[in-house]
Simulated scan of single mutants.
Amino acid sequence: MRIGAIIQARMGSTRLPEKILKELNGKCILEHIIKRVLDSGVDICIVATTTNKIDDTVQTFCDEHNFICFRGSEDNVLERYYQAAKENKLDVIVRITADDPLKDSKIIRKAIDILLDGNYDYVSNTIKPTYPEGIDVEAFTFKTLEKAYKEAKLPSEKEHVTPYIWKNREIFNTYNFENEVDLSYMRWTLDTEDDYIFIKNIYSNFVGKENFSMQEVLEYIKDNPKILEINQGHIRNEGYLKSVKEEQG
């Protein structure tokens, strides 16, 4: 059983360009995410970027740090995942986005363990969100990914990788795990400049500590509740909802 995390990453973000190379405590965001993912115990971590010239920078970064880099379609991210997983002979895939530098390695591991122990096709904490946005994790089998790749038709299903899976739960054996307390109102992802200010504030409290947990961040927020006001006013899953709206005209 070969378990691999695939991190989708590109330089051309429309809302916050080149965000994946922004600095936090002396390291870029992409490096923080890779290290957090590797701490979950996956066998391999793959940075999946595009073939666009602008993403040569991502390739160079990976080469310099001895990280694995795969390059594929910009718009059809589902195809990019499928080809990256196939090339690296993955049996289980963990989907990670490169704009979540507060990912918790224990929660990533939890998704993997539930998938394997329950013999599920797909496991996530996103179908019914109860974790902060940015702590999202999805794990699925290669067979599931391959079926989605071959059958998904809508542009939103191809751009966002997993909608075909979780929209067809009569086909796939899925499981959603929940946090004890609903924290879905919290925004810990990076799409805007105010998100970066919020995350930078968090990281500044953990200088010298590589992989602090979600619980440690929650304790910091409990003592400093006003920092949640920094990046309020954004809709959860804004990118996916925008894609669906565009499909509907």
Rank of each mutant, 00 (worst) to 15 (best):
Y220F: 15
D195I: 05
T126A: 15
E219M: 11
R15Y: 02
E210D: 14
A85H: 02
K150I: 02
T126N: 15
K53Y: 14
T14F: 10
L218E: 06
Y240V: 01
F212P: 14
E238K: 15
H32M: 04
K27C: 03
G233I: 09
D91R: 02
S40T: 04
C62P: 03
P155M: 06
I20N: 05
E238L: 09
E178K: 15
V207I: 14
Q248H: 06
G249Q: 07
G208W: 01
I135R: 12
I108E: 00
T51D: 14
K245C: 04
K143R: 13
N168V: 05
P225C: 04
D104F: 02
F212G: 07
E178Q: 12
K153T: 10
Y196A: 03
I235M: 10
E157Q: 12
V217A: 13
R2A: 07
G233A: 08
K128Y: 09
T192P: 10
I230R: 09
D113Q: 15
S213E: 07
I3N: 05
S124Y: 07
C45G: 10
T174N: 15
T144A: 06
I46K: 12
V77S: 07
E146H: 08
R15C: 09
L145Y: 08
K245I: 04
E178F: 13
S13R: 09
E210N: 13
E170W: 10
K89V: 00
V161D: 01
I6N: 12
T144Q: 03
G26V: 07
P17F: 07
R236P: 10
T51C: 14
Y175T: 01
Y149A: 14
N211G: 07
W166H: 11
E210Y: 08
G41M: 11
N179G: 00
K209A: 09
P129E: 05
S105G: 01
T97C: 13
E157K: 01
L16W: 07
V94N: 11
I202W: 08
V77K: 11
N224C: 12
I197F: 12
E87D: 08
H160V: 01
T192N: 13
S13E: 13
I227W: 09
Y240E: 13
I33R: 02
F140S: 09
I107S: 08
C62N: 02
R109C: 09
Q232W: 11
L102G: 04
H32F: 05
